[in-house]
């Protein structure tokens, strides 16, 4: 965040809670799109599983040995997925547009505001993510540094999940209109292959979601509310070479 406003040397800062400050972390557009995306993706997964129910064919295993079948029978009963194909399709094909529009809006927004810089991984991200993982699993003591807003593992997963979002959309349209959009279907290896991709993406979303919830819970209430309020409280440097204090002063002046 670059701010060229300078404090007026005549009026020294009022030391109201000198060590804490709230810094803008998620802009309004990002927040709204994040929270709009949440119910949409839940609806897409749920209606997608109602579709999958009609032809339950995917399993993990080697040759004839089946290790895990998607899904056990109780799963369908618990989530009301039985005998709901027509409704599943109706929800899926209507909400697909909303999910797609929100996704496109998010990318345009992220690009126009430059927010993407906070999210793109680089060559070191893979290595850095491993450090984060080891730290999170309490195998390593030192906390790996953040690069800007996010640490390397966050950069990697957030970029990946946005990519997955687009893969869900592309594979979705590829199996939605395999003739009219035959080029897309061809790129994804044909109808059957696009369908496997579409399902795999769904599973990946669910896994991401579980880890995401866990990490947000671990990061605490104030991190969570930053996705609602936009701001996160940070401790400022008391040594005087405080990056943020001039801005804060001018802001308080403006508030006053």
């Amino acid at each position: 965040m670059s701010l060229d406003t300078n404090s007026d040397p005549q009026s020294p800062p009022q030391p109201i809670e000198p060590t804490k400050i709230a810094v803008l972390k998620h802009r309004r557009g990002s927040r709204w799109m994040h929270w709009i995306n949440f119910p949409l993706i839940v609806i897409m997964i749920w209606s997608g599983l109602r579709i999958y129910w009609a032809n339950r064919v995917y399993a993990f295993g080697i040759l004839s040995w089946e290790w895990f079948m998607f899904f056990p029978e109780s799963f369908y009963t618990a989530l009301d997925l039985n005998q709901r194909l027509a409704r599943g399709i109706a929800f899926h094909f209507t909400f697909a547009w909303l999910f797609t529009l929100n996704g496109i809006a998010f990318v345009i927004y992220t690009w126009r505001t430059g927010e993407w810089r906070e999210m793109v991984p680089n060559r070191k991200s893979l290595r850095g993510s491993l450090d984060v993982l080891l730290h999170d699993l309490r195998i390593r003591k030192t906390e790996p540094p953040k690069r800007g807003r996010y640490n390397e593992a966050q950069r990697l997963t957030y970029s990946l999940v946005i990519f997955l979002g687009f893969l869900a959309i592309l594979s979705g349209f590829a199996i939605f209109k395999p003739t009219q959009l035959s080029i897309l279907t061809w790129i994804l290896g044909g109808y059957t292959s696009a369908r496997v991709i579409h399902f795999a993406v769904t599973i990946a979303f669910v896994l991401f979601f579980l880890v995401h919830i866990l990490q947000v819970a671990r990061a605490g209430w104030r991190n969570f509310t930053s996705m609602v309020t936009g701001y996160e409280v940070t401790e400022t440097d008391t040594s005087g070479s405080n990056r943020t204090s001039p801005a804060r002063q001018s802001m308080e002046a403006a508030d006053g």
Partner: peptide
């Protein structure tokens, strides 16, 4: 880009 704690509480 930044808020005082008072403004932050109101904001929250």
């Amino acid at each position: 880009p930044e808020l005082s704690m008072a403004a932050y509480r109101q904001r929250t």
